[in-house]
Amino acid sequence: MKNGLLFILVLLFTSPLFAQQKDESRAYTRMGPQVGIMLTGKANPQTHSVDIFTNSRLMSLNLEGGIGYYLNKSNRLELNGSVGGFGLRDKKYKAEVLSRSDAYFLYNDFELDATNSTGNALRDFKVVIEYIHDLSIQKWKFSPSFGGGLRQVNHRDYKYGIRENTANQSIIYSLTSHTKPNFFYRLGLRFFHERWPDAEWYLNFSGGDVKYSYSIQETDPFSNSVPFTVNYRRHLLVVSAGIKLKILFSDYGTN
């Protein structure tokens, strides 16, 4: 996965060297931030005493960059990669989990320290290939896009404790996550004005399953530990918006 991202970054930064060698170059690079919101993300099935993930809507922030190529004046292909994460708030997560049952208490503090921390984000890596069709309406260009790629959402290892409200003893769960890249699709709409062809705004809608495997160590107050595994699937639907700065190596596609 990391090698894939490295490959994209290398392409991103070296493509101008090749592109500028020809006057009629059709290549370009693009890079920019995007913010999004998770529409759905319910963990399924619910096999654990406490949901491993919150089902609340999380905000995402990504930095995406890539290279593109004009097939002709109005059609292009892009290869993009992004790095980012979903925000995960300690208090919000705790309140949501506790609202499901009044039989136990949940103890965790994401910002407490490295040992107890979940971190405050789910790391999100994506590689996506997209087809874009440019439509001109007066001085604006609107470009619907669609594509697919691979996504990996990682969670930092963490601990949490559960205590029934009828007992002094708590059970500590130590979680280690294992995720693999999963396919996702992306539909989008971009637009830019002829006057500022290098600044491309866009709105994306992406979806796909993310499969998780958690190795969990359950430890009681007397230090007895029981290991077990939880597998579950999570369908992510994310709407995101952003702006990318495009570096064109000729006027191709903008005239």
Binding site: Y107, L112, T115, K159, G161, I172
Partner: peptide, 9 residues
């Protein structure tokens, strides 16, 4: 008895 130490961990 155990000393809670303000944290179950």
């Amino acid at each position: 008895f155990v000393i809670l130490n303000d944290n179950y961990f």
